[in-house]
Design a binder for these strands. Sequence first.
DNA 1: TCCGCGTGTCAGATTATTTGACAAGCGCGT
DNA 2: ACGCGCTTGTCAAATAATCTGACACGCGGA
Lengths: 237, 237
Amino acid sequence: MAELKDKLILVVDDEARMVNFMRMNLELEGARVASASNGREALEHAREDMPDVVLLDIMMPGMDGFETLRRLRQFSQVPVLILTAKSEEDDRVRGLELGADDYIAKPFSHRELVSRIRAVLRRHYAAPPVPQTMVKVDERLSIDFARREVLVAGQRVNLRPTEYRLLYHLVQNAGYVQTHEMLLTKVWGPEYREESHYLRLYITYLRQKIEEDPAKPKYILTERGVGYRFVDFENKA
Amino acid sequence: MAELKDKLILVVDDEARMVNFMRMNLELEGARVASASNGREALEHAREDMPDVVLLDIMMPGMDGFETLRRLRQFSQVPVLILTAKSEEDDRVRGLELGADDYIAKPFSHRELVSRIRAVLRRHYAAPPVPQTMVKVDERLSIDFARREVLVAGQRVNLRPTEYRLLYHLVQNAGYVQTHEMLLTKVWGPEYREESHYLRLYITYLRQKIEEDPAKPKYILTERGVGYRFVDFENKA
DNA sequence: TCCGCGTGTCAGATTATTTGACAAGCGCGT
DNA sequence: ACGCGCTTGTCAAATAATCTGACACGCGGA
């Protein structure tokens, strides 16, 4: 399990209260915290301190979070979580497209903050470089991608080719939101980027086949305005 | 264009006449030739001399070509061309599965020998590590894989998803034979390895769409008993 | 030359994908 | 708390792709 202990986390936000709130929460978990109140400082810190994770506020005066992220990505692959207002769905999509790893919507709880950071750390430092075959999600659901076999409550369910590819991409990124565009691009091809219709339909099909109650999905979660996220089944703490 | 000049070619054959024949042909092209008459010697040479290409006879007393290839592949990625009797189609398939890059059927001409070696060198030393998008095969046929557009004699032809994937894998390996199994695995998935029926059908579809005369294919060539080969359109010398 | 196996082709059966229309639900502003 | 608008979810029919099975063809080996 990925631990926050002794990890260096760079918090970037122009509001001192928010920085303090996060610092408190993160230090409670044993993490070290560096902070910056604008984009320029953030880039300096990122270069010099080599943080393990960056928490980046989008709404900042001067160089905003997007621009900061874009420049950061020119020299660093450090995992980045962006902080957005609850309602700003477009900001999340844009951030993810610029290379953010995930987002946290303000306001957020201690639990949410820590769990997202853990997930991102796990992927970056413990992630298998080879794609997973044979995934056991929980007692009810397991998938063998090499054999194209999906077992739900002991029963084999038959997935169609597109359903299969969609599930594959969702599960390979379990715990991470995948935007509509990402999924459409990977499953149907780049020329389908705008056709979110297809995606909704195939999400429905998949849920009907693998969810216990398709109306209350436990595996394939909707991220309104952004995309879908397969449940973070490896991070149950 | 890949050149044989000054390249070191390791020829492995137990028949001295064959070795001499190849040495003569290769030195005419300015290549340097090392030779071995059995598997053990071949492995030694491969380790110590770092040849640019290996020509490996399959039928040898003692350690045969397959075993030699298997052991060679444990420590080296050097391109290997296997030499097989005209009729031994199974040998070719087996050799390719063990990691040979191509085969040459005995007896062969100077032209055939040199052209196959050139092709293998081109792929290994000049090959782009990123997959090609936008391929111009000749005046009649060009393909834009990013846009999923195939132009035949100026006309856009519409390929179905499977036809598309099949063409993609053939063209990405233009000049190289792809065994039935390779194509079935890549296009349909590993569980279709035995279903060569599908492959034949889709080869027919593709030829009808891109060949001028589907009965006399110029692009997608049949390698009887082995697989298919997209014409080596970059190596017209 | 003839035979046999691998390859090529066709048309029909089946299955998957796409389309289009509409219902449901969430979250925002009032 | 309420209703509105936009996103998401669902259904069934239309279209398209894939698969099946039968058979013809033709190369290469004996």
